[in-house]
């Protein structure tokens, strides 16, 4: 089995993985980071979104071996060490951008990249950016509000 090392939420991690192991499987099943969710098997829901080298990636579409030598951030790595929520996390709470919480980690990771890349993004841009993330609970209204609020702070 190939051994890989990656930087995961700021810490160095090495693991032996099967060639076919998906990144999401490595995170959830081997490393116990269950905040990243699996909502489909056709890479269409975005529940599994994480950051790889700062870009959002559906971790169900990436092999664990492809993460070798790269920097991976999951929802568990977003808040500050003292527990302070990131601006996007805080905005989701402030604007009730989550109900059951299942889509939330993916939504937050995806939105975080948008806010970092495009501070000041408007409603249309946000809605289009979130095309890859399904939410069945919120009707997106409050998610969009939250992302807009976070975008105005200009910090993900």
């Amino acid at each position: 089995m190939p051994a890989i090392s990656l930087k995961l939420n700021g810490r160095s991690v090495t693991a032996e993985v099967e060639a076919r192991t998906l990144l999401v499987e490595l995170l959830r099943e081997r490393l116990g980071l269950t905040g990243t969710h699996v909502g489909c098997d056709t890479s269409q829901c975005g529940a599994c979104t994480v950051h790889v080298d700062g870009r959002s990636v559906k971790s169900c579409t990436m092999l664990a071996v492809e993460a070798d030598g790269r920097e991976v951030t999951t929802i568990e790595g977003l808040a500050a060490a003292d527990g302070t929520l990131s601006p996007v996390q805080a905005a989701f709470r402030e604007h009730h951008g989550l109900q059951c919480g299942f889509c939330t980690p993916g939504m937050v990771m995806s939105a975080t990249e948008l806010v970092r890349r495009n501070p000041g993004a408007g409603e249309r841009e946000i809605r289009e950016w979130l095309e890859g993330n399904l939410c069945r609970c919120t009707g997106y209204h409050n998610i969009v509000k939250a992302v807009q609020a976070a975008a105005q702070t200009g910090r993900g």
């Binding site: 969710h37 709470r93 402030e94």
Partner: peptide, 19 residues
């Protein structure tokens, strides 16, 4: 009121059955 549920869901600490 802001929700009591949010902190765990926003930080990946929810406990769903598959977790």
């Amino acid at each position: 009121m802001k929700r009591k549920e949010d902190l765990r869901f926003l930080t990946g600490k929810g406990t769903y059955v598959d977790d």
